[in-house]
Amino acid sequence: MDKKRREFLKIAGISTLAGLGGTAVIDRLATGASPARARAAYEINSLSPAGQPKEKGPAKAAAKTSQRLGLVIDMRKFNANPGLAEKCIKTCDFLHNIPHFNNKKDEVKWVWLTGYENAFQEHSHYYRNETLEKNQVLLLCNQCDDPPCVRACPTKATFKAKNGIVAQDYHRCIGCRFCMAACPYGSRSFNWRDPRGGLDMKHINPEYPTRMRGVVEKCTMCVERVGIGKLPACVEATGDTKAMIFGDLNDANSEIRKFLKENYTIQRKPSLGTHPSVFYIV
């Protein structure tokens, strides 16, 4: 964890510089681009490949990382395997000690199912086909490449790790909930009360910390597992159905990039410029 923290601080340092207006310089240093190329950096979104931001706006909170871990969620496979999505949710809930309270107000969730019209508000909802009408979509944090939550956080308690994952430091979070207002996907939950009250303390996962009240949490793409070479737990739970494909979006030869090349996928609210790292086939 310590080492990770240091790496993170390095990124944070660079991003601080970037915030102070050094973006163009850093980008040029990093990419070795000529001034002409750097100026063209303000090309509009649609000219760059989907989800892979080429343009650089000012005041980026999170520096670009060498790795960018992402997911493809293939709802066709989930629809063909009833109960699979629930299995993923259960796995995550147990592994990360997600509390359950019997009221909506205190709700904490990392991964859940919701209607297509709620998940993809920017897409047309008129005369939907039966599949979309009938089935729900699996939602989790998008691990945005330009995460507004990281931009908003006043303590860097939510930060972008070197592998592109937007992680969370429960011990630094002051509970201001600015990140919740900033996340345009509703991915974040706050511990309105002691989460241990919503857990069966005899059946918790001792390997993952339970949180304290007053801090924010969300899906971290299993940063603790991915760091030691394991798959995210929900991906593992899908077995060989290929309902979820995990990999490095920056690696042109990865399975996920090949899949994206061969299939039409969509992202949630791409027009906001957050560059989600989670792709969907609905």
Binding site: T16, G19, C153, P154, T155, I174, G175, C176, F190, G214
Partner: peptide, 19 residues
């Protein structure tokens, strides 16, 4: 309004100009 009011100094200990 803070969930962890005792940690408020983190805003100064970890200054974050992009916030």
């Amino acid at each position: 309004d803070l969930g962890q009011p005792l940690r408020v100094m983190n805003v100064i200990l970890h200054p974050t100009p992009h916030s």
